[in-house]
């Protein structure tokens, strides 16, 4: 059986026994999620890769204390979120000191590294991506957890250690900012 297809409970129990197959299953199942959160929070591929590695090292260190009956995704998202928050001041410092922000176009970098990028939707994606990048890292994380990972409010609250009420209000504000920045796009879209 494909290890990544196993339930969280089976995977976490295997990892607690330090079973290499269980670890492979965990890493294969959750690396995409961890990377997606990290790359959106940090807006940098290399930092997102570093954080992804850090996250699984932390998981390895603390798995013995983890309750295997609980779902893994919110726990991994929380470790990712915290690792990104720790790294952000350093990244912002480096960016201030070394890279003029006006010369840096993360959307174009990402486009060139992804040959499968659809030309038709490229402009929309670029606009959405650029608007998202202008939000705070926490707001980006909340939107990614909700709209990309499909987390519920309580799962987002567990991942970010925010009260559920704060998650709701922050999400509401973040959507408002995004709607303002992408007003022309909102007008174009017909549902």
């Amino acid at each position: 059986m494909d290890e990544s297809k196993k339930t969280d409970s089976e995977i976490s129990r295997g990892c607690r026994r330090n079973d290499p197959r269980a670890w492979r299953g965990l890493v294969e199942k959750y690396t995409p999620m961890v990377y997606r959160i990290a790359v959106r929070m940090l807006i940098n591929d290399r930092d997102a890769e570093d954080v992804s590695q850090e996250v699984f090292l932390r998981v390895h260190r603390y798995i013995s204390g983890y309750d295997p009956t609980r779902p893994l995704a919110p726990w991994l998202a929380r470790i990712t979120y915290n690792s990104c928050l720790k790294r952000l001041p350093r990244i912002q410092q480096i960016a201030r000191n070394e890279t003029p922000l006006e010369d840096y176009d993360p959307v174009d970098d990402r486009q060139s590294s992804n040959p499968a990028y659809e030309v038709g939707a490229a402009d929309t994606r670029r606009q959405v991506s650029a608007a998202l990048d202008r939000l705070s890292a926490q707001d980006r994380a909340l939107l990614v957890l909700r709209y990309r990972e499909g987390f519920t409010d309580s799962e987002i609250a567990e991942s970010t250690r925010m009260p559920v009420g704060s998650v709701k209000s922050r999400l509401h504000r973040a959507r408002g900012k995004l709607r303002k920045m992408l007003a022309p796009l909102f007008k174009e879209i017909t549902t």
């Binding site: 997606r36 994606r125 959405v128 990309r148």
Partner: peptide, 8 residues
């Protein structure tokens, strides 16, 4: 709109 983000 948020579904139109690059797949990362």
């Amino acid at each position: 709109i948020l579904g139109a983000l690059p797949p990362d």
